[in-house]
Design a binder for these strands. Sequence first.
DNA 1: GCCAACGTTGGC
DNA 2: GCCAACGTTGGC
Length: 144
Amino acid sequence: MAGRSHWLVKSEPDAFSWDQQVANGIEPWTGVRNHMAKANLKAMKKGDRAFFYHSNIGKEIVGVVEVVREAYPDPTVAPDDPKGEWVCVDMKALMPFKTPVTLAAIKADPELADVALVRMSRLSVMPITPEHWTKLCKMGGIKA
DNA sequence: GCCAACGTTGGC
DNA sequence: GCCAACGTTGGC
C-alpha cells in the first residue's frame, strides 16, 4: 500500500518484552506519556509497521509489529491525570528479526547516524524513513 | 552506579 | 515568561 509509514517503538523488556508480544498476539501499546511520542502514535495508520526495540536490556531491535488499531484513549491513564488525554494503539507481532540489530550496530553505520533512535534516545515512539526501514530489515535478516 | 539529555515544575 | 532545580530515561 502506498504511503504507509514506518515506526520504531521502544519497550523495556522488564516491563513488556517481544516474547510477551508474541505470546499475546495483539496487544495495546500503552503508557506513552510524552507529547512527541503521542503525536507519532496518532499519526499511525492501520497496517503501518514498526520495529520493536528493547531498551536497557539488549538494546536491540528484535522484531516487527503491525498496527491493527489506530490511536484511541489509553485505558491506563489515571482518571484524575492532570495531563488529560493520552492515546495508545494496538499492535500485533508480525515477525522476529533473524538477527537482532543492536544499537551499537546502528551507531556504527554512517548511513544510520540520523535515525531518531540515536539522536533522540529518550523518545519512545519515533518515525523511521523508508530507506532506513529497508536497510534495518536487511540487517535483521528479513524481507522489508 | 554514574552521567548526559531532556522534560517538567515551581519560584520569581 | 524566564530559568534553575529536580526527576526520569537510557546508554555506558
